[in-house]
């Protein structure tokens, strides 16, 4: 049971990194990124391939962040030319392109067979609870650092300007500020965070295949952000924890509804998550922590 809770905690913290990144992009800056999973996948595969090639973990993580951020650059530039809703379509399409590329480029990614045997973190602590506890601890630290950075950023003049862009981009230009530069930077920053989350994921799961990177992941992150409260960093924290309670907690719902089979239960779980989202939007549209949007 402890091992299970640690594992759930690790996944929750990985989602938290993703949600904090999306919240920076959408919650604070208004960029509709429906391709979160693409940068998550790029981070995961980058770090996995590098470590399988003999790299140590830490530089592999750093490169994963950088690669995810660099890939975000051209997408960010595109977003300058597109209005909000088109950016949503482009990013969603991009995430599917990334997934299909992973599927097809077998020489690099082993396609649908996947990449097995990705090195775990903290191997020296042996296989088992201690290594995973250490992973959990590092993830907590990374999340705390990300939260601290966000809280600081939002209060800075830089953060004020990105929120102004979210509220009215035309007015931002009218006061002589360049929304383009900041939108690209924010897109890269949030994507770098997704790349970091991907690296953690790769070395925790130790096996990667393209079907782990469906758009569903993106929408889980969106759900976490909305439930928690868009435009609030504490909301991203609360939201990703609540999401995990729903995703994992609904596993145990089968104990109360025994007539449902294991296979059917998977669908019931998704239905429960959907129901939760609907109830949240009706009874608490501003999210758990309140929203500034």
């Amino acid at each position: 049971m402890i091992a299970y809770l640690i594992a759930v905690g690790i996944i929750a913290l990985i989602y938290m990194l993703l949600t904090i990144g999306l919240n920076l992009q959408y919650g604070y800056t208004g960029l509709i990124n429906f391709g979160v999973v693409a940068f998550f996948a790029i981070g995961a595969y980058t770090s996995a391939l590098l470590t399988l090639g003999g790299w140590p973990l830490v530089p592999a993580f750093v490169v994963a962040i950088i690669v995810a951020a660099i890939v975000a650059y051209p997408i960010g530039l595109l977003s300058l030319r597109l209005s909000d809703d088109y950016l949503a379509v482009v990013t969603l399409g991009f995430s599917e392109v990334v997934r299909l590329a992973i599927q097809q480029e077998r020489w690099l990614t082993h396609g649908v067979q996947g990449l097995p045997g990705i090195p775990r973190m903290f191997l020296s602590l042996g296989i088992g609870d201690y290594a995973e506890l250490a992973t959990l601890a590092v993830l907590v630290l990374c999340n705390l650092a990300a939260i601290g950075l966000m809280l600081h950023l939002v209060r800075s003049p830089y953060g004020r300007l990105i929120q102004a862009i979210r509220d009215d981009e035309v007015a931002v230009e009218a006061i002589g500020k360049d929304p383009r530069r900041l939108k690209v930077q924010v897109f890269m920053l949030g994507s770098g965070l997704a790349g970091l989350a991907g690296a953690f994921y790769a070395h925790f799961i130790t096996y990667l295949s393209p079907d782990q990177f469906l758009p569903l992941v993106t929408f889980y992150v969106w759900i976490a952000m909305i439930i928690g409260g868009t435009g609030r960093t504490t909301g991203a924290v609360a939201g990703s924890l609540i999401l995990m309670v729903f995703l994992e907690g609904s596993r145990f719902a089968r104990d109360w509804i025994p007539s449902v089979s294991e296979v059917q239960m998977a669908s019931v779980r998704l239905a429960l998550v959907g129901l939760a989202l609907i109830l949240f939007t009706i009874y608490r549209p501003q999210g758990m922590m309140g929203s500034r949007r």
């Binding site: 003049p157 929120q163 102004a164 009215d168 007015a171 002589g176």
Partner: peptide, 16 residues
């Protein structure tokens, strides 16, 4: 008017 609706009045001034 195109105010930055979620920023305070002072923040609206400062951002400009």
């Amino acid at each position: 008017p195109r105010e930055f609706a979620h920023l305070t009045v002072r923040e609206n001034f400062l951002v400009a």
